[in-house]
Design a binder for these strands. Structure first.
Lengths: 334, 334
DNA sequence: ACATAAAATGTAAGCGCTTACATTTATAAC
DNA sequence: GTTATAAATGTAAGCGCTTACATTTTATGT
């Protein structure tokens, strides 16, 4: 592989000049610029990005930590991020944290040790304090789907209270009066917020919130399954169940069928996230849209702006959810 | 950030010695090793991986090109790969090719320019010739889900003929006699192979293959939708349709319902890939398992072995599909 | 105690770039 | 034609490591 040295020799200029044309430095005459690019072409020269990084103290790489590389939620997020960065010649180093404190910390360590210029973090298990401490170290980072008030300017989040509110309001509007709720783990802020929105809608319709109709799940499919079963067997009757995410809604669907209920006639189910497979389940699931792809892009823009001083579209930290009506909610239940 | 120089000064040894303890070189006495690690701890030293890469001519990064970062197929593949590499302190740089020739080439260029030591490629649009030429350049790569005979030792593939065979055989065993087929784009080898397996099973049961019952799709959901509609309106009657992947099967399901058919009673549907949401559709889709996660791991092992000379489990290039029976196929259709 | 080999450590060059600073060349003003 | 100023180019010192080779220390055999 040709080096800058060989290019400079062929072009008959100094190393510095070659470097200047590479970096589009203004102070190069057209004539020499042409000589240099010609020499580059002739040699098939490609700059060594490692050497560039070492000399410029900028690796042009940004680290991304997500809980899982698979699963319906992270894919669209990564897509949005990758796209933005590739256009800017930055590259993405990806690691998985598996929603586990130790592994999330390891992942962050790993990315830092890889000289990332900035980090995009979707972490769940690591503590607020850890992140606040981290924010005082060298490497800048932005948080997706997590709010820490001390770090509020770098938290890209969804308005989950509103989302929870919209979901329940829709179900209420269809005439349901007995509504069960399967929440996420309530130590998580987003699970809390969604539930809070639910309560708010209930209150608005003059309905009391009933603890008996609440089941605390963990955002995973299985907990939707057992959640519905538990509610069905122990709680008072209900005509609709609202799930704090689509995975649990899916579990609840399976559970409902196992209980012999026909959907949606005998039970309406509402999801949250608008993960792509919600269109494909049967009946197609009504849910709340989580614009995760856009939020990924915004996180990338944040990095572009704060780390690389690039001009970007105005940064937005809180996104708004939207109701997506499909066919899992009946009107006027008996 | 402390450098190796400061560590060496604190420990009272030379740079080389510090480097040796970092790299676990055997020729370091226990006493000095201790001194050095103590100094490292005291300074909170972290080696600069960029400098290491430049000096050692090894970036410890491997590039991964997939068609999309989202979608049900690539997630599990990336997961398998990331996991293997992180344990080995290698890192993954990810780019998307979008099944488009230009973008795939760009992606490969991008990864190479990022000094990847090796590449894992899931490419669809780029030509065999291009890849053969690429194989003669510096950077080693392995191919997932693509077979090129000149490069056969670095192609990690599924036995798609067998998969196609298993799918059709299962449907035949349930008593179906009129079977439609929605294929992938037939310029793709995997689409061809799956269809070939289908024909083989038909032949084994003494049934002729009927061109009229074939629709050529493009592996995307929409083509499953229009495919079924087209077949239904123009072809002779059939009691089952086999789709060359799950996405198209999903489209076919939606289409069937729109045609007023109840599933699976009036139409059996078979998928391929065993993408995770196939459990969630209704009726749960019978399909062929594609062990993409394992294949991803194998690709990572290939790189570990060929690029980094690591000892790995024996390499396997062709994987076997398996039938997954769920509830989308009826028995003894009328 | 000595010679000899093996183990431990040090020296210094170099990986391929960037960039501050110095120098040369072109341009403008008089 | 000078001189002042700006533009273009060159020089050389790093960036933080690895590693071939040289040197010193330690262990081994007699």
């Amino acid at each position: 592989m040709a080096t800058i040295y060989e290019v400079s020799k062929l072009a008959g200029v100094s190393l510095a000049t070659v470097s200047r044309v590479m970096n589009n430095n203004a102070n190069v005459s057209d004539a020499t610029r042409k000589k240099v690019t010609a020499a580059m072409d002739e040699l098939g020269y490609r700059p060594n990005s490692i050497a560039q990084s070492l000399a410029s103290n900028c690796s042009n790489s940004v680290g991304l930590l997500v809980s899982e590389l698979h699963g319906p939620f992270y894919g669209p997020m990564m897509s949005g991020i990758e796209n933005t960065f590739r256009n800017q010649k930055k590259h993405l180093i990806i690691a998985a944290g598996h929603s586990n404190e130790e592994r999330e910390k390891q992942g962050i360590e790993f990315l830092i040790s890889r000289n990332c210029d900035g980090l995009i973090l979707h972490v769940e298990a690591v503590s607020d304090d850890y992140l606040i401490k981290l924010s005082k170290s060298q490497v800048p980072f932005v948080l997706i789907n997590r709010f820490i008030s001390e770090l509020s300017d770098r938290c890209i989040i969804l308005n989950n209270i509103k989302g929870g509110y919209l979901a329940t309001k829709h179900v209420l509007e269809q005439g349901h009066k007995q509504i069960a709720y399967i929440s996420g783990p309530l130590w998580k802020k987003d699970a809390q917020d969604r539930l809070e929105g639910h309560k708010k809608a209930l209150a608005e319709y003059g309905l009391p919130f009933d603890e008996q109709l609440l089941y605390q799940g963990d955002f995973m499919e299985a907990s939707g399954f057992t959640g519905l079963k538990t509610l069905y067997q122990h709680a008072k009757p209900f005509s609709a169940v609202i799930c704090a995410n689509d995975e649990m809604a899916t579990g609840a669907m399976a559970s409902a069928r196992e209980l012999g209920l026909t959907l949606p006639d005998q039970l309406s189910i509402m999801g949250y996230d608008n993960v792509f497979f919600t269109r494909h389940v049967y009946p197609p699931l009504s849910t709340i849209n989580y614009p995760i792809n856009e939020m990924g892009k915004m996180a990338a823009d944040w990095v572009l702006s704060h780390v690389y001083q690039k001009q970007t579209a105005p940064l937005q930290t809180v996104f708004e959810p939207e109701l997506v009506v499909r066919q899992s909610i009946t009107t006027n239940p008996q």
